[in-house]
Design a protein around this nucleic acid. Structure first.
Length: 129
DNA sequence: CGTATGACCATGC
DNA sequence: GGCATGGCCATAC
């Protein structure tokens, strides 16, 4: 697509590392203030017909509930990359969730970072032990 | 330009 | 946890 907005969305998705997942909302936040999760979904849907080059790792974009939105195939692709899902199809966003783009890259291309949530999290030892 | 649509999300029950 | 609702905003017609 020559669509500028979609190109920006694809650029961001291409920066999600292997073995990580990002939510539609996260991608929307990075792309820009007016961009919504719905538009990210639209941009991903457009890939069903035409795959741009370089390819976009669309499977790494999932919904805010930690589940895939398109069916078992997407989950399978992620599992091959090392992402773990439980029996109900949920993944742990704290563990596999994307922490945001490289700050230098984001600044160079005019993208935002993922503020809020992360940074310092309380040391609740509720997983692992 | 108005309407319908959507691989979404937060909220409330 | 599931289901319904309203909001969101770019696209397609």
């Amino acid at each position: 697509m020559s669509n500028p907005l979609y190109q920006r969305i694809y650029d961001v998705v291409r920066h999600i590392p292997r073995g990580c997942v990002a939510t539609y909302g996260q991608v929307a936040t990075v792309v820009g203030a007016t961009t919504t999760a719905r538009e990210v979904g639209e941009a991903m849907a457009a890939l069903r017909d035409t795959q741009p080059t370089p390819p976009v790792p669309w499977q790494r974009v999932i919904n805010a509930q930690g589940k895939v939105s398109t069916g078992p195939h997407q989950q399978h692709l992620l599992e091959q990359e090392g992402v773990v899902f439980n029996a109900k199809g949920h993944t742990d966003l704290q563990r596999f969730g994307w922490r945001g783009p490289d700050p230098a890259w984001a600044a160079a291309h005019g993208f935002a970072l993922l503020n809020e949530v992360n940074t310092e999290k309380p040391q609740l030892d509720l997983f692992g032990r």
